[in-house]
């Protein structure tokens, strides 16, 4: 990412409104952004308007779609529409909390390491290498085994799993920024190092973090859903897309359509986030910054 590292970021903020509009006017970015917004709205407001209780067994199992149950009922006779609409809430909440924790801790550590360097930086670097050498899913499994499956525990697991990656990208970015003139100037003015860190370096990391946050949240939603799918994450009877895919798999030969609803919801969320971030990153010249 040499071009991103040398691009003057100050100018990126100067034309914000026009760039935002230009990005949104591209059809893929616009549609993707709209889909993300709808998904978030749905997750936030679902309990207020779903037609049925998500855990009540209301009708015979696998009833076909109709006026009462718009998507039919699931294996246990619960209203499938209500469950589908509510199925992203928990995973999204856990992912957002976990990623917020990872970004907060990882940014502080990465900033300190990248700016102060020295032996502590070296040690943190090795630890980050080790954590990232463990396949993500194995690390998640070990931590779930250690912490359990409660929602705070799952959020802590997400935070721990993603913190190493955040430290790595923030540190790399900080090193690139610290070599630039405006940081040298602050040092020559005699600013304390902490002030340089917080006032000069941290604001310049915000574009990077703006890309990191949504990319990592969508990845975390995928991981949590996969965990739930394997029976190691969110527990029944919580409506959750990963769990619903697993339940639907048992009847895949007779009622394959049951699987398509949660699969489509989960995929549309993740696809939309990735396409939206891709579009904005291109518009703001941030391409290639995320996902290290």
């Amino acid at each position: 990412m040499p071009n991103a590292a040398t691009a003057p970021l100050a100018s990126a903020t100067a034309h914000r409104p026009s760039r935002l509009l230009r990005a949104l006017r591209r059809p893929t970015t616009g549609i993707a952004t709209l889909a993300v917004v709808l998904h978030l709205l749905m997750a936030a407001t679902a309990p207020l308007w779903v037609p049925h209780d998500t855990s009540a067994m209301l009708d015979s199992p696998l009833a076909p779609p109709g006026a009462e149950f718009w998507f039919g009922t699931d294996l246990l006779g619960r209203d499938y529409f209500s469950r589908i609409v509510s199925g992203g809430q928990v995973a999204l909440l856990v992912a957002a909390l976990g990623v917020a924790g990872a970004l907060a801790i990882g940014t502080l550590i990465g900033l300190a390491c990248g700016y102060l360097r020295g032996a502590a930086d070296e040690a943190v670097g090795r630890l980050v290498d080790a954590l990232m050498a463990i396949p993500e899913f194995l690390l998640i499994s070990i931590l779930v085994l250690a912490f359990g499956k409660s929602l705070p525990a799952l959020a802590a697991v997400v935070a721990l799993v993603y913190v190493a990656g955040v430290v790595r990208v923030v540190r790399a970015r900080t090193i690139a920024l610290a070599a630039q003139d405006f940081v040298r100037a602050a040092e020559l003015r005699g600013e304390p190092r902490l002030a340089t860190l917080l006032r000069e370096l941290l604001p310049n990391l915000l574009p990077l973090l703006a890309v990191e946050a949504p990319v990592r949240i969508s990845a975390a939603v995928l991981r949590i859903s996969a965990l739930s799918f394997l029976g190691l994450g969110i527990s029944p009877p919580t409506p959750d897309w990963g769990l619903m895919v697993q339940e639907a798999m048992t009847v895949i030969l007779t009622d394959p359509w049951l699987l398509l609803f949660p699969a489509a919801m989960l995929s549309s969320f993740v696809v939309a986030v990735n396409f939206a971030v891709d579009g904005f990153a291109a518009a703001y010249g941030l391409r290639g910054e995320a996902g290290a």
């Binding site: 995928l222 859903s225 996969a226 697993q246 699969a263």
Partner: peptide, 9 residues
Amino acid sequence: SLPEFVTGN
């Protein structure tokens, strides 16, 4: 962007 358990299914 599709999760493995969706593509697989």
